[in-house]
């Protein structure tokens, strides 16, 4: 069975080389925002994507939504490349932006904002559109009064609901949620998360939930991917990842969740800043900050580990675990 959406060893590099440098093959410096990610998302599945700022999680989300084109590799929706898909199918992949106020045109009211995608879906009669607007607003927990409001009259949570309603108007099958709860306060966050997971289960919509907020991801996701400097370092079902984190980076992240006990011993806390993606460290990208390199040995900076299975659904990219023999093209 093919996955609903899959990324196959996608890379997205940003180059700051000018056209002259490119012409002379000089090449400026390159940012390896996403460096060889393979990810499959099934129908109705909610996948969480966590990582520090700048690790490439938003870029990966934009690649999966088709807002960015991969430098290498391919993103496929229902087995067809997202780059050359028909407009009708293309609409089924949507993205919920991080800052809802930014993602809604300040000059349009909610009715205008929702009308366009509704018309696109073939509803053209005015009464039809009004009915659709009301049912969409209801679906995201807003009353019909909101139809005539402008974005500056709405709060952060209401804005994100309107943005979600606009997305739902196109009846999508896959939505990338790019940190949709980072701009709202705690109780609104919980409401939005509930809404997202309810809608996903109700309509069978797959979600890629991008966040640096582990508790939010734990709440919503079926499966979690941990990203570090453009690569996925660990992938596991949500419960298993929280119960048995295997990658040193995941352990450090979980350890960094605020603890009630101030005297708790921090086993694997993170030090320093993540290295620049312009010049990623040789070997394993995490080795300069890893607590286990001494234990594992020089292999950590000699070559990069491959993402390999520990069990059927738990993948990890670390030399702490014995290497499974594998096909050479998965090595990196």
């Amino acid at each position: 069975m093919t996955a609903l959406i899959e990324a196959e060893s996608v890379k997205r590099y940003y180059s700051n080389a000018s056209w002259l440098q490119r012409l002379l093959f000089l090449g400026g410096s390159e940012i390896q925002a996403v460096d060889g990610v393979t990810l499959r998302i099934e129908k109705g599945e909610i996948v969480g994507l966590v990582g520090e700022s700048g690790c490439g999680k938003t870029t990966l989300g934009w690649l999966l939504a088709g807002l960015e084109q991969p430098t290498e590799g391919a993103v496929r929706f229902k087995g067809r490349s997202l780059g050359n898909i028909d407009a009708e199918t293309r609409k089924k992949v949507q993205l919920l932006f991080q800052y809802p106020r930014e993602s809604l045109n300040p000059r349009h009211n909610v009715r205008t904002i929702l009308s366009y995608p509704i018309r696109k879906m073939g509803h053209t009669a005015t009464a039809d559109i009004t009915a659709r607007i009301h049912s969409l607003l209801e679906a995201v927990g807003l009353s019909a009064r909101y139809a005539d409001r402008y974005s500056f009259q709405l709060s952060g949570g209401e804005l994100q609901r309107v943005a979600l309603a606009r997305t739902l108007a196109l009846e999508p099958e896959f939505i990338v949620c790019d940190e949709p709860t980072s701009a709202v306060d705690m109780n609104v966050k919980v409401q939005i998360l509930k809404l997202l997971s309810d809608i996903s289960r109700e309509k069978g919509i797959s979600l890629l939930f991008i966040s640096h907020d582990l508790s939010a991801v734990r709440f919503i996701a079926d499966r979690i991917c941990v990203m570090y400097l453009g690569k996925i370092v660990e992938q596991a079902p949500a419960q298993q990842l929280f119960d048995h984190p295997c990658h040193p980076y995941t352990m450090a992240l979980l350890d960094a969740i605020a603890d009630i006990d101030p005297n708790a011993i921090r086993k694997a806390s993170l030090h320093g800043q993540p290295p620049s993606p312009m010049a990623p460290p040789a070997g394993c990208r995490f080795h300069p900050r890893c607590a286990y390199t001494e234990q594992v040995g020089t292999i950590c900076w000699e070559r990069g580990p491959a993402l390999q299975p520990l069990s059927t659904d738990h993948l990890v990219r670390c030399f702490l675990y014995p290497e499974v023999s594998q096909d050479p093209d998965r090595k990196q």
Binding site: K91, L95, S103, N105, P106, P117, A163
Partner: peptide, 13 residues
């Protein structure tokens, strides 16, 4: 470069 333009592009406008 603002998100509402990206959103419009995503909707196929």
């Amino acid at each position: 470069h603002r998100a509402y333009i990206k959103a419009a592009q995503l909707m196929g406008m």
